[in-house]
């Protein structure tokens, strides 16, 4: 099953490699991983999307907690949560496709960030499946580049991960 794990860790050199190393050493998979400092610059917040049985996810959470640099861990998928991913897509925008791509971007509430005579760069935010379906909705041959951040997640309401 797909899990989205959020954690707070010391914003120090090497902390990221400890987390990444834990996954590779134990054969756990990482679908995506995002990390950036929080409002407290000494702490980073990381969101990891992974797959595994309940037993594997339990081990992942425990092993993450065991890392000295990791201050708090939460499996967001255990409760209500929000999840967003940012995607930048550069597409070939010429002739009839130029209007069609603009329309599709509007339907998916995307924004066109950059325009050249032959390309658009579209920004889209949403869940993974929304971004996937945008990519499926446009002509595949027109896609020049896609850049995705991987999911960031946060608990709903009073589900708060803070020190």
């Amino acid at each position: 099953m797909r899990h989205i794990i959020s954690l707070l860790m010391e914003n120090e050199a090497g902390a990221l490699s400890r987390v990444a190393g834990l996954f590779s050493a134990r054969g756990y998979n990482i679908e995506s991983l995002t990390v950036a400092p929080t409002e407290d610059a000494t702490l980073s917040r990381m969101t990891i999307v992974t797959h595994g049985s309940d037993a594997v996810i339990e081990q992942i959470t425990k092993q993450l907690n065991k890392l000295i640099d990791v201050a708090a861990v939460m499996d967001l998928s255990e409760g209500d949560h929000l999840e967003r991913e940012l995607m930048l897509v550069k597409v070939r925008a010429e002739g009839a496709a130029r209007d069609e791509l603009k329309r599709m971007a509007d339907i998916f509430r995307g924004r066109i960030l950059d325009v050249s005579s032959h390309t658009y760069t579209i920004e889209l935010t949403g869940t993974r499946s929304k971004l996937d379906s945008f990519l499926q909705s446009i002509d595949q041959n027109l896609i020049l580049e896609t850049v995705r951040t991987g999911a960031s997640g946060i608990g709903r309401g009073e589900r708060i991960l803070k020190l």
């Binding site: 050199a13 090497g14 490699s17």
Partner: peptide, 14 residues
């Protein structure tokens, strides 16, 4: 040294 020992220490420091 920190990289090569990372998987076999409780923690390490440079």
């Amino acid at each position: 040294a920190v990289g090569i020992t990372r998987p076999c220490v409780k923690h390490n420091f440079l």
